[in-house]
């Protein structure tokens, strides 16, 4: 972010008795770290759980095709 756009952002926010340039970045850094971690964790949980489900479905389909008599005893 350029200095000009950072200045205009700080101008919109309450000036915090002159400490705005320290208070707002502190909350922004915290938000950035926490939201970043949350999004990364959400994405990897969704992706891994979907992939595990696909693999298991594929294996179930494969074992049903090769061992039709044992399909009823599914593990």
């Amino acid at each position: 972010m350029s200095d000009a756009s950072l200045d205009s952002l700080l101008a919109v926010l309450p000036d915090m008795g002159g400490y705005g340039a320290y208070v707002w970045p502190a909350f922004a850094i915290a938000a950035l770290v926490l939201i970043g971690l949350l999004v990364q964790s959400l994405v990897s949980a969704r992706r891994n759980e979907a992939e595990a489900a696909t693999l298991r479905a594929e294996r179930a389909a494969a074992s049903a095709a090769t061992e039709p008599r044992e399909a009823g005893h599914g593990a």
Binding site: A45, N48, R56
Partner: peptide, 19 residues
């Protein structure tokens, strides 16, 4: 919340490896 999400991701990753 996030530690549960990350544990779920890891459990699924182990399942993928095993499969």
């Amino acid at each position: 919340c996030v530690v549960i999400l990350r544990m779920r991701a890891e459990i699924a990753a182990r399942r993928i490896r095993a499969l």
